[in-house]
């Protein structure tokens, strides 16, 4: 019986290994890729207030009209802070339209963040409950979706959007989408 107890650490370890294995198998083995279900689909329906103007209700219609990025961020997210300067660059220098999705965050903190770090977003959707994030299948902030003019998701990037990701993956797609009617 004493011997039996010594197997406990091993059992716990196998449980953890199984978890990791499941994680690696999911979503085509790559957590940084979009589950194919959402590619070429419009952004799931939502009706949520704008961050800076709680009176303004936003819907998927507001995401149409321009080839744009939908960037999921939050003040509790360390990587978002690392990512922020590059979003500023994209908005100011590359003149890219970026919509924000403030995910499970405190409104006051989020407004303060934009005031002190700069606001690269055309507007930010305030998803306090995380419902839209859930529908989108947000894996963890930051995440960035590329939308075409009709508001359809064409690409998803999980993790920090930096110069390399922009140049190698997103910029070519953006150029391509601009040529689409």
């Amino acid at each position: 019986m004493e011997r039996f107890k010594l197997f406990i650490p091993l059992a716990i370890f196998f449980a953890m290994a199984a978890l990791f294995f499941v994680m690696l198998q999911r979503e085509g083995y790559n957590p940084q890729e979009l589950p194919s279900a959402l590619i070429d689909r419009p952004v799931p329906t939502f009706k949520l207030p704008a961050l800076k103007d709680a009176g303004r209700q936003l819907t998927p219609n507001d995401l149409k009209g321009d080839v744009a990025l939908l960037n999921v961020w939050a003040t509790w997210c360390v990587s978002c802070r690392a990512e922020h300067p590059f979003l500023m660059h994209l908005a100011n220098v590359e003149k890219m339209t970026i919509y924000g999705l403030d995910y499970k965050d405190e409104t006051r903190e989020a407004i303060r963040w934009l005031a002190s770090l700069g606001d690269p977003y055309k507007f930010t959707i305030n998803d306090e409950e995380g419902r839209l994030g859930l529908d989108l299948g947000v894996y963890g902030a930051p995440e960035t979706y590329l939308l075409d003019r009709k508001g359809v998701i064409r690409y998803k990037h999980v993790g920090v959007l930096d110069e390399k990701v922009w140049r190698e993956k997103i910029k070519p797609l953006v150029d391509h989408l601009h040529k689409e009617p």
Binding site: L24, Y29, N30, P31, V78, S79, Y139, G140, G159, V160
Partner: peptide
């Protein structure tokens, strides 16, 4: 492995996770 994303994962590559 890229299982977790964070500020530090400059070199994450899920292909090596397994």
């Amino acid at each position: 492995s890229g299982v977790l994303t964070s500020v530090h994962s400059f070199a994450a590559d899920p292909a090596r996770g397994t």
